[in-house]
Design a protein around this nucleic acid. Structure first.
Lengths: 235, 235
DNA sequence: CCAAAAAATTGAGCCAGATCAACTTTGGTG
DNA sequence: CACCAAAGTTGATCTGGCTCAATTTTTTGG
C-alpha cells in the first residue's frame, strides 16, 4: 500500500512510527496486529475531504504526513478552523466517545496528505482490554482540551495584533529568545481564519509588525530579530 | 459532614447521587468506598475560590449543588469565562491527564456551592483497575471537547446579537418551537463575559431583541413568544 | 426596613477591524 | 514561456461594539 504524500514512500517504516504513537504504544503485539488488520492507508489530494460533520464516526485516524484542516461551517457560511493537524496528530479520536457517534466537524487535506485509518469499533474493543491505552487516549484528549482553552483565550483577546503575535510566538521553541526564522505552517488566509480575522487584517498586522522592526517577512518565511523583543511587545 | 448550600442538607442521599455519576458508576463497591475514604465535602461561599490556575491538580471535584465558574485571567487582566458548571458536572477531571498536572484555569463559586472532592492519585489508581470507568472519563472529556468546539464557533461568529440569540436558544429544549419562558442561569454580566462582549453590549442586544418583538424581558426571566421565530432570525 | 453596594440600563463618542475594490505577486498548467 | 487562477497586499470607507459616564434598579447586610 503506497502513500503519495511528499517523500513519504521513501520512509519505509511508517509502521514503526505508528507503533510508538501515544494511542497505540500500550497495545500488545497481538492487539496491535489485530488493529492493523482493520487499518487502511488513505491518500488525500490537496483540498480533498476526509470526512464531513455529521457523518457516522466509524473510523479514527492518525496523520502520517501532510496537513489536515479540522473545521466547521457556521450558519452564515463562514469557515471556522478549529485546528490544523500535522504529523502524528490523531484525528477524531474523541468522536468515538461522543454520545451521538458522529464527527463533530469537517476534515480535509490542506496539502497532499497520508493518513492511517482504523476501525473505531475495533479500537474501542481493544481499549477495553488495555487500560494503559485508555490512559493514552485520555492524555490525548486532555491535551486537546488544553489547546482548546488556549484557543478560546486567544479568540477572546480582542486585539488582532496581539492574536497574531501570540500565534507567531507559538511557532517558536520555548527556549528561544534571540533571532529566529520560522515558516508559516499554512497559507496566510488560513491562519487569518484560525485567528478569527480577515486576510486583509492579517496582512496589515504583519505589515505593522514589520514596520515596527519586530519582524522581517519573505513570503511565508518570517525572521524575528528578537524573540524576547516580540514577546515583550505582545505582553 | 454538612453542606451549607441551599436546601442541600435536606437531601440526605447525596452519596447515592454521586454513586451514579458517570465518572464513578462503573466502580465496584469496594473501589467506591476506597475513593470515598479520600473524599471531602467542600462548602464554598459566593465568590470563594476553589483552586487557581497553575496549582498542582491534586483533587478532582463533582458539583453537588450551586454553580462554579471556570475561568482564566488574560494577559490584559480580563476575565475569560471558559464554562459555568452546575450540579453533577465534574470539575478538573481532565487536569489529571495533562502533561504538567496543574489546573489549567481558575475555579470559583458564583453562588453558595457544595462539591465533593476526591484525591486524584487515588482516583487514577482506581481507573487503572476499571476500564469501564475509563470509558466514563473519556465520555466526559469528549462531551467537554464538543462544548468547547461549539464555544469556539460561537466566539468566531462575529455578530454580538447572533451570539446572544444562540446562547438563549441553547437554554431552550430542542423540541420546543412555540412560546417558552427561560431563566438566565447566571448574572447578565457573567453571560456577557462568556459571550466575549461587554455587559453594556449584552444589555443593548437584549433591548434590541425585545424591540423586535422576539423577546419579553422581566429581570432574568425571558419570554420567547416564538422559539421558531427567534431561531429563524438567528439563522 | 433602610442604607449601601452591586448589577443593569442608557447615552455619546470613538476606533479597530470589516467590507469593497483595485492592484501585485505567486504558482501551477498547457 | 505565457496564461490564468489563486493568494496576498494596499487603500478608502463605514460600522459594530468598546469606552467613559450618568442613572436607575436590584440585591444584600445591618
Amino acid at each position: 500500500m503506497g502513500c503519495r504524500a511528499t517523500h513519504f514512500e521513501l520512509q519505509t517504516n511508517w509502521t514503526q512510527q505508528v507503533r510508538q504513537h501515544l494511542l497505540l504504544s500500550a497495545l500488545s503485539e497481538r492487539q496491535f496486529s489485530e488493529l492493523m488488520a482493520s487499518a487502511r492507508l488513505i491518500d488525500l489530494e490537496p483540498r480533498q475531504s476526509l470526512f464531513q460533520q455529521g457523518e457516522a464516526a466509524e473510523r479514527v485516524f492518525i496523520v502520517l504526513a501532510g496537513r489536515i484542516k479540522f473545521f466547521r461551517i457556521s450558519a452564515s457560511g463562514r469557515e471556522i478552523v478549529i485546528s490544523v493537524l500535522g504529523r502524528n496528530d490523531p484525528v477524531a479520536e474523541a468522536a468515538m466517545f461522543m454520545s451521538e457517534q458522529h464527527y463533530p466537524a469537517n476534515a480535509s487535506a490542506i496539502e497532499g496528505s497520508c493518513l492511517l485509518a482504523f476501525n473505531a469499533q475495533v479500537y474501542q474493543r481493544l481499549l477495553r482490554q488495555s487500560v494503559d491505552s485508555c490512559f493514552g487516549v485520555m492524555a490525548a484528549m486532555a491535551s486537546r482540551l488544553q489547546r482548546s482553552m488556549a484557543e478560546i483565550e486567544t479568540l477572546t483577546q480582542q486585539d488582532a495584533a496581539h492574536r497574531v503575535a501570540r500565534f507567531i510566538l507559538d511557532l517558536v521553541d520555548k527556549g528561544e529568545s534571540g533571532q529566529v526564522v520560522v515558516e508559516l505552517p499554512v497559507s496566510k488566509q488560513l491562519i487569518a481564519a484560525r485567528l478569527a480575522m480577515q486576510p486583509e487584517t492579517f496582512s496589515r498586522v504583519i505589515a505593522a509588525l514589520k514596520h515596527k522592526g519586530l519582524l522581517q517577512v519573505n513570503g511565508g518565511r518570517l525572521t524575528i530579530p528578537s524573540v524576547a523583543g516580540l514577546r515583550q511587545w505582545a505582553v
